[in-house]
Design a protein around this nucleic acid. Structure first.
Lengths: 150, 150
DNA sequence: TATGAAACGCCATCCCC
DNA sequence: GGGGATGGCGTTTCATA
């Protein structure tokens, strides 16, 4: 993982539609060594996947909600069950266990407030161990990127 | 935007390395009409971009922080300046303006707690209008996906 | 107007230097 | 790390209903 590898990562995380030849001379390498390094980074798992990023707004998913989840009990089994189940909701795009007051932060994408109410009341609140959920609605997305600072 | 388009979107947001032919018969279409629909979805901006997703851990970016930001004043100029500047930090991968107590939620990726301290004290706290920042560290990533529920 | 088939040209991939 | 060859695929055009 030298400077050239980092250069390559910056290029591919910006746009993976470009051809090998284009990306190669963007980083100042001929196509073969560039390709070899790329494959190595993929094999090592530094490059996890290549995906298309969709526009949530254009798909009608206009509402972003942050849900702060508190659990009643913190035994291994409850945590494991909660984590497994919360990850399965397609509306949940992000979930972290946290230090501090709230046990989990969940970011969910829904079409409307009513849809969130259903998600919350019928699903999230029934997840293993959940005692309380504090929901906050996003007013506006300032930044949301998949680009990591390499 | 019919069911077939949604099928296509599900496929490309899962893995954009597959060939047109593979994806086409994954959705039950021959490659030409698949290709045309794909181009249309790109032109409409429903498909925003195609990128490589990197592994933050493997790049040493092991610390995820959620920073809840409160502003002193909420005039147009202050908001606009804050939003423009916060988006420029490469460590900030996510920022939403919020309803409720906190004005902005920021998710940042750093290599260490010390690095976060520097980011917080030297940069975030000096952003336009900021009066207080409440930081919470993620203990574990349960889910983090770019796949939208289509 | 939407689909299927075929041809062309480029690019990812592999071999060797 | 670089250059060359090749097989396959994306792209385009034509044909079809």
């Amino acid at each position: 993982m030298d400077d050239m590898d980092r250069k390559i990562l910056r290029v591919v995380q910006n746009d993976s539609t470009a051809s090998i030849a284009e990306m190669a001379d963007a980083v100042g390498l001929s196509h073969t060594p560039f390709w070899r390094r790329l494959k190595k980074l993929e094999a090592e798992g530094v490059i996890r996947e290549r995906v298309a990023i969709l526009d949530a707004e254009k798909l009608g998913l206009g509402i972003t909600v942050f849900a702060n989840v508190k659990l009643r009990q913190h035994d291994e089994d409850t945590l494991e069950a909660f984590e497994r189940e919360v990850a399965e909701f397609p509306e949940v795009v992000e979930c972290f266990s946290m230090s501090g007051e709230t046990d989990y932060v969940v970011r969910a994408l829904v079409r409307s407030i009513e849809e969130y109410e259903r998600l919350l009341k019928r699903k999230l609140l029934h997840l293993p161990g959940v005692v309380a959920i504090n929901s906050h609605f996003a007013l506006k997305c300032i930044k949301l990127t998949t680009r990591l600072p390499v």
